[in-house]
Design a protein around this nucleic acid. Structure first.
Lengths: 117, 117
DNA sequence: AACGTATCACGACGAACATCGTACTACGAA
DNA sequence: TTCGTAGTACGATGTTCGTCGTGATACGTT
């Protein structure tokens, strides 16, 4: 039956409406940065459920929403699952080098040095 | 009271103690991003007072403090003035390409819009 | 249709943040 | 020493954020 289209609409900002401040803020949270890293390593068809974050399910949903509204990821439904993908092409076009620098820095940060935890 | 020599001690994180999340969060604020851009264009000996931000003096002080504690800028006193400098060498060493990507994106962001200049 | 699974929307709550004004300190010059 | 300038510290306030639990929704399978 035709559902009232209000339910599963996912709004994404257009490429030119992606704002630097929003992207930086979105990726400044450790959970969200990890989501971005996961999507970068696991590929473009990663469901929310496979991300094993240290927060609850609803919080994960919230973080994915923030990332989507900032233009960092794209989300689409496939059955009961929601697949997430980095908007690499859009981000690279709008902010060249930014995504690579941040993801590279995150890798460096997490297992590159003798830092505590 | 146990006041050390002067109240003008400025604590900076060591290069290894600069954290990506703190840097991204610091630069996600428009005022702080602008401060970083000013320091990038005006050079390493820029006083707080020449930054003409749309916020009050005490708020500017606060933003500079956040940037310093995140490791983005270095501050030192010279007489009554406090000079600010980007910690470009430290940031480039720790997060290669990050600062350039962010500053470049900020320029793109501000000059690409439908505004003058 | 009924059920189970995956996900979301909503509301709540404490923590963190951005902002301000005022009172204060430090330094150089008169 | 007195004064003016540059910047700080502190407290207050309204806002945003991160987190959670609960109830609802959509989809595939039975």
């Amino acid at each position: 039956m035709t559902r009232p289209e209000t339910a599963r609409d996912l709004t994404h900002p257009a490429r030119e409406d992606i704002h630097l401040g929003a992207v930086l803020h979105a990726l400044s949270d450790p959970s969200r940065l990890q989501i971005a890293r996961l999507l970068d390593t696991l590929g473009d068809e990663t469901s929310c459920s496979v991300m094993d974050l240290e927060v609850s399910k609803s919080t994960t949903t919230h973080h994915c929403r923030v990332l989507r509204e900032a233009g960092v990821i794209r989300q689409r439904y496939q059955g009961t699952a929601k697949l997430n993908a980095l908007r690499r092409a859009d981000l690279d076009a709008r902010f060249p080098g930014l995504l690579d620098a941040i993801l590279g820095a995150a890798d460096e940060c997490l297992h590159g040095g003798p830092h505590h935890r």
